[in-house]
Design a protein around this nucleic acid. Sequence first.
DNA 1: CTGAAAGCGCTAACAG
DNA 2: CTGTTAGCGCTTTCAG
Lengths: 346, 346
Amino acid sequence: MATIREIAEKANVSIATVSKVLNRKGGISQETVNNVMKIARELNYRPNFTARSLKNGQSRTIGVITEDLTVFNTPEIVDGIDAYCENNGYHYILGNLRFNKRFGNQPDPEECAKLVHSQVDTMLSKQVNGIIYVGYHSRAIAPVYNYEEIPFVYTYCYSTDPNIPCVLYDDQKAAYEATQLLIDRGHCDIGVIAGPTNSIHSANRILGYQEALYANKIPFNPKHIVYGNWERDIGYELSKELIQSGVTAIFAHNDLMAAGVIDYCTEHKIQVGKDLALIGFDNREIGTASRPKLSTVSLPLFDMGQTATQVLLNILAGKHIQRGQKVMLACTIIERESTMPASDSC
Amino acid sequence: MATIREIAEKANVSIATVSKVLNRKGGISQETVNNVMKIARELNYRPNFTARSLKNGQSRTIGVITEDLTVFNTPEIVDGIDAYCENNGYHYILGNLRFNKRFGNQPDPEECAKLVHSQVDTMLSKQVNGIIYVGYHSRAIAPVYNYEEIPFVYTYCYSTDPNIPCVLYDDQKAAYEATQLLIDRGHCDIGVIAGPTNSIHSANRILGYQEALYANKIPFNPKHIVYGNWERDIGYELSKELIQSGVTAIFAHNDLMAAGVIDYCTEHKIQVGKDLALIGFDNREIGTASRPKLSTVSLPLFDMGQTATQVLLNILAGKHIQRGQKVMLACTIIERESTMPASDSC
DNA sequence: CTGAAAGCGCTAACAG
DNA sequence: CTGTTAGCGCTTTCAG
C-alpha cells in the first residue's frame, strides 16, 4: 500500500506537504495540491489508520462487548450502535463473549469475569475510548472491570454500581400499555403469566399492570397473577388455571409462554382473539407464526444501541452525566390478531 | 496508560530491555526479568496494539463485512468466525452494511457497491490482512472490490469470479437426505414446494430430491414440483394443489412455506405427521413454534464462519488454494414431529 | 508556501 | 546481559 512518502517522492515535495494536502490544512499552493491529489489517487493511497491513531494519540474508536451475538436481542442493538457510530464519525470494534455456547443460560460468574477481563484488556490495548457492554439477558451485573480507566455504558443489563449508566427499556410503561390495550378491548378480568418470581422484568411489568387496572378502577385480584419460567409448556399449564378462574384476557410476559396459551386454547376449542384476548412480550418470530397471530410488545433494540452509543459519546465529549443515569426507552405495542375484536366494555 | 518507557524508568533499565522482557525474548537476567515484570504489573501495563502493529507491519487482523447483521443467518456465522479467530490468535474487525434497513430485500447494486467499497477502504486503512464477506441472502455477487490487494473469502454467497473462494452449504446433499427421510417414512408420492424458479438453492435442492427418488427407484413426476416465493401464504396455496394431486409428503424449501402447509392442513383437518409428512428447510424458530413441530434442515452456520476463517487464514499462511475453491458444508436433518410416525413403505 | 525534524509506543539490529 | 539507535506512517511545530 502506498505511503505518504511514496507520494512525496513522486510529487517532488516533502512528506509534510503531502500530509497537509491530504488533511486539507491549507497554506499550500493550488498547483501542489492538485498534483499531490492526483498522485495520491493514482497510487490508490489510503491513510494508515494505525499510524494516524498512534500519532494523534486517539482512535475515535469504541469497544462493543456482547455477551452473546447469537441471542435474539443483540444483533439489533449492535445494528443501532453501528448506525450511530457511522453517523458520528466513530469506529467500533466488536468483542463477542459467546456466553450461550460456553455456559448456556447459567453463566459461571468466575469464568465470565475472566472472559470480560481479557476482552476489556484487548480493547484497552487497542486504544478504545469507551466501551458499551451488551447483556445477553437482562440482569444486574457487577462492574465488569476496574472501569475507572475508561467510561462504560451498559445496555440490556444494568450495573450494581450506580456510576455506570445503562440503557434499558421501560417494562413498567410497556406493561401498562399492554394492559390498557386489553382493557380497551373490553376486558376487566385479566390474568398475568409472569416470569419467575425473582425476575425484575416481571416485577416491573406487574407494577405496570396494576397501575393500569387502578387507572381504570378495576379491582386487582392477586390470584390473577401466576408465575412461570419463560417456557412454552408452562404457558400451557398456567393458562388452564387462569382460564378456569374466569379471566377473559391474558398478559403473558413473553411470547413463548403466550404460545403455550394458544396451544391450550386450540386444544380446548377456546378461540384466542375472540373467547380470550392474549398479549405477549418481546415480539419474537413465533408471534407471527402462531395462529392467531400474537399481539405483543416490541423492544426498542435498535434504539437502545443508538442511545447507548449516544450516551457514551456524550461522556467522551465531556458532557455531564448524572450519577446512576438510567435511560429508559419505550416499547411499542404491536396489535395483531390475538387481541383484535373489540367487544363491549366491562 | 503506562508505556514501556515508564516501566524502563522505574526499573532503571532501557526500553529495549523492557521490550525484551515483555516479549519473553530471553537473554535477560532473571533478576531484571522479575523486576520489570513486577513493575509492569504494578503499573497495570498493557501493550499498545496500535504501536505494535505499526512497528511490526502486521496486525494479525482480518475484516469481516456482513451485509446485514440482523438477518437470521449472520450472527451464527460471525460467532464461528469469532471462535476460530480466538483459537488462532487472530483479531477481527466487523463492518456491518445494514442492507436490510437500507434496501430491504432489493439491494440497489450501485449503492451497495459504494457501501462495500467504503467499508473495504476503511478496513484496508486499518491494515487488515484479509476479508470475509458474509452475504445476507445467498446469491452470486460480482467481486466487491479490486480484491487483488488482499485475499477475500465469501460465505453465504458466492462470487461470479472463480478466483474468490467461498464457503457454502450443500443444498443438493441436504435435499437428498431430506427426501430420503420422507422415503424412509414410507412415502413415494413426494411433493416439492420450491422457491422461485430462478433460485439456485431450489435448483440444487430439486436435484438432490431427484437423485434420492432415483436411488430409491421412485419415478419422478414433474407435476410434483411447484414453485413459490418463500412466503407463508404461498405454502398454504400450493399445498392445496399438491395434496389434491395425491402427494402424501411435502418437502418445502423453507420453513415459512412449510408453516403455510401446516396452516392449510390444520384448516382441512389433515393431520401433519400422520396424514401428511412434511419437512422444511432452514431450521428457523417457527419450526419449533408450529404444531406439530416441524422437521427441517439445519444450516451449518457456525461451521461456515469457522471454515471461512480457516480458508482465509490458510491463504494468509501462504497455503495453496485451488482457483475457484468452493467449500460445501453439510447440513443436518432435524427430525421433529411433522415426519415422525414411520408407516409402511410404498 | 514548503521542508526539516521530532516523536507517538514499540521492536529489532547491533554494539558493547 | 544490556543499551543505543533507527524506524514503522503519520502529524505538527518551527524555521526558512
